[in-house]
């Protein structure tokens, strides 16, 4: 692929037949790609540019007709968004939610990949079943979780109070924080946020599992065999043989999961509606848009979300994950 590049860019003194052939190829390539490019341009690229413009205009759904390229530009939206109550806390919530869910899903995915690597009877079926949380419709799975965790008729609370001896049912999804005592230590847990993070880790660990399993299977068997012959324990083999092989995938997964979770809307909206300390930025954007019809403020808020994401990714790629560049093609 690298070798072909100079030819495509420098016409040079090639023979004329060769030139027309590469020109034809160029034209065919662009023609084959044009439907895709048009759709992406119209439905993704232009709207995004428009969002940037909307973010700097005072627009509500009612006076939408006035909106155009030459509207009045103002920083009022940004000021409104940045100074509105709950903005900084929602950014913080988003960050906690994203980091928690990213780490959780990759950790469970890694454990699952290690456990389901070797052969056993029914492995194919188990491997497929483990993917179910990821492929099932989000609306259906959030409802099951809601019902399982419900304080009135939820299985978790019924078993908790009857078998585990809880004093009273716990409202996992609508209680902002809960006192937990562990080994004599008392501390506050942001309960609803924690539940949402657990849900997110449950739903997306199969994604990490797929990537990690594929990489694990590509690790040469001789490497592990040699370490085993030398008397290395399984944890040592994992630490010194497997983990270095997996590191680039884990770094890549961290970036992917972080981006996806940071932007996530459905899961939080459906589970808690953004209440009880789980208001992430994307849910706020939705509320600006549908409850207040304030398009300008919603755009500004969305823009802040995107900028925050870019900033965090830049920091991550610069300081925390040098291996991503090596592992990424």
């Amino acid at each position: 692929m690298v070798a072909t590049r100079p030819r495509a860019q420098t016409p040079g003194p090639a023979r004329s037949r060769e030139l027309t052939r590469s020109q034809r190829e160029n034209r065919a390539g662009l023609a084959y790609l044009s439907p895709t490019l048009i759709v992406v341009l119209v439905v993704v690229v232009l709207p995004v540019l428009w969002t940037v413009m909307l973010a700097f205009q005072r627009i509500r759904l009612i006076n939408l007709r006035r909106a155009g390229v030459f509207g009045e530009y103002t920083l009022a939206n940004l000021k409104l968004v940045l100074s509105s109550p709950g903005f900084w806390s929602s950014l913080w919530t988003t960050l906690v939610y994203t980091i928690g869910a990213t780490v959780g899903s990759i950790a469970i995915g890694l454990i699952a990949a290690l456990a389901l690597r070797g052969w056993f009877r029914g492995r194919t079926l188990v491997r497929a079943s483990v993917l179910l949380p990821y492929v099932a419709p989000v609306v259906a799975v959030t409802f099951v979780w809601e019902i399982l965790l419900s304080p009135q008729f939820g299985l978790a609370n019924d078993w908790g109070t009857r078998i585990l001896g809880w004093d009273r049912p716990i409202a996992f999804l609508s209680q902002r924080s809960s006192e937990v005592s562990l080994l004599g230590w008392e501390f506050e847990v942001p309960l609803a946020l924690f539940t949402v993070i657990v849900f997110e880790a449950w739903r997306y660990f199969p994604f990490a599992f797929l990537f990690l399993l594929a990489r694990l299977q590509a690790v040469p068997a001789e490497l592990e065999e040699a370490a085993r012959v030398d008397g290395a324990a399984p944890t040592q083999i994992f630490r010194h043989v497997l983990l270095p092989q997996l590191a680039p995938v884990i770094a890549l997964l961290t970036v992917l999961r972080f981006i996806m979770t940071f932007n996530k809307f459905d899961d939080v909206y459906l589970l808690t509606g953004g209440g009880a300390g789980t208001e992430v930025v994307s849910v706020r954007v939705y509320q600006f848009l549908t409850a207040r019809f304030d398009i300008g403020a919603a755009s500004a808020q969305a823009l802040v979300l995107a900028l925050g994401l870019v900033l965090l990714l830049a920091v991550y790629l610069r300081f925390l994950a040098p291996s991503v560049e090596g592992g990424d093609r």
């Binding site: 439905v43 993704v44 232009l46 709207p47 995004v48 428009w50 969002t51 909307l54 759904l61 939408l64 909106a67 992917l256 981006i259 996806m260 940071f262 932007n263 809307f265 994307s282 954007v285 939705y286 848009l289 398009i295 919603a298 755009s299 969305a302 823009l303 979300l305 995107a306 994401l309």
Partner: peptide, 14 residues
């Protein structure tokens, strides 16, 4: 990788 919520606003308007 783009935030779909960012896309949602202009598409909603458009």
């Amino acid at each position: 990788l783009f935030p779909s919520i960012l896309l949602a606003i202009p598409l909603f308007v458009l």
